[in-house]
Design a protein around this nucleic acid. Structure first.
Lengths: 143, 143
DNA sequence: ATGTATGCAAAACATTTGCACCTGG
DNA sequence: CCAGGTGCAAATGTTTTGCATACAT
């Protein structure tokens, strides 16, 4: 239940928050921009302002419900944070995003941070490429 | 000689380009924002517009002379591209950046991209943390 | 009731672009 | 000389903020 998730992190339960959480939950594999969340809300008939979308997403990020990523191309994207860390591989041609985790890489990162005298807060690994080998559903949107 | 570098990549040799290249070369370990490059130019008495800084940096990026990174915090940063790839470890407290390369990670990335059917164009690995263990020169700027 | 959240519009940034002028080859 | 580069200011796109109103508790 979304109400519980919100309460748990100390946020008042409001329509915008519930709806935005809903959008993110119903697109578990997608990485949505604020604009996309906003449009999704409009489409489901909700009258929620873009500013609120930004505010709520930022609050969710602070609360640890959501992760924000700065991929190439202007807008930040948001995805639900299920607590399980993962990295991203992004197609530069169509924007499709896949996730992965690799323990070897994770461990090397810890070692490297240690070597340099840093305490890791977080890390971001993004592989950019083209997914031409699989049939990308976004492919046809261009023409 | 900077003139040669510019010619080599097919760019006309102009004052702004030489100066900007100079700024980047004299700060080989720094990752400068366009704004910082701009200010450095002003300080060295050059009257070069911010728009030109952006234009030139973008041209340099296209020409492969410079790399642009999107670390956290708004502005993109630029550094000279010596051809040798490396990743970054960034201190979130003071902004200090160190570079590293790790072959194990590099290889795993190739393997992962392959597994997912992507052809790698590029990748970006940024470790965020705090460099509290070494004496960071930026530390004192806060108070 | 009351403090917080929201919507709107305006502001704040980072970056790009149009255009008249200047400069390098 | 002429294409291309530059400076300035204005435009753009994204994200943030101020303020009056609406809502959750």
């Amino acid at each position: 239940m979304k109400n519980k998730e919100l309460r748990k992190v100390g946020l008042k339960v409001t329509i915008p928050r519930i709806k935005i959480l809903g959008i993110l939950e119903s697109n578990p594999n997608l990485h949505l921009t604020a604009e996309e969340v906003y449009r999704a809300l409009l489409e489901s008939g909700e009258d929620i302002g873009l500013a609120t979308v930004y505010r709520v997403l930022t609050q969710f990020e602070t609360a640890g419900l959501v992760k924000r990523h700065n991929f190439e191309g202007g807008s930040a994207v948001f995805e639900l944070d299920d607590g399980a860390h993962h990295d991203h591989i992004v197609c530069l041609e169509c924007g499709h995003v896949e996730e992965f985790v690799d323990d070897v890489i994770e461990n090397r990162q810890k070692a490297i941070a240690d070597q340099h005298g840093y305490k890791i807060t977080d890390h971001s690994l993004i592989i950019y490429g083209s997914c031409s080998r699989h049939e990308c559903p976004h492919r046809n949107e261009e023409g």
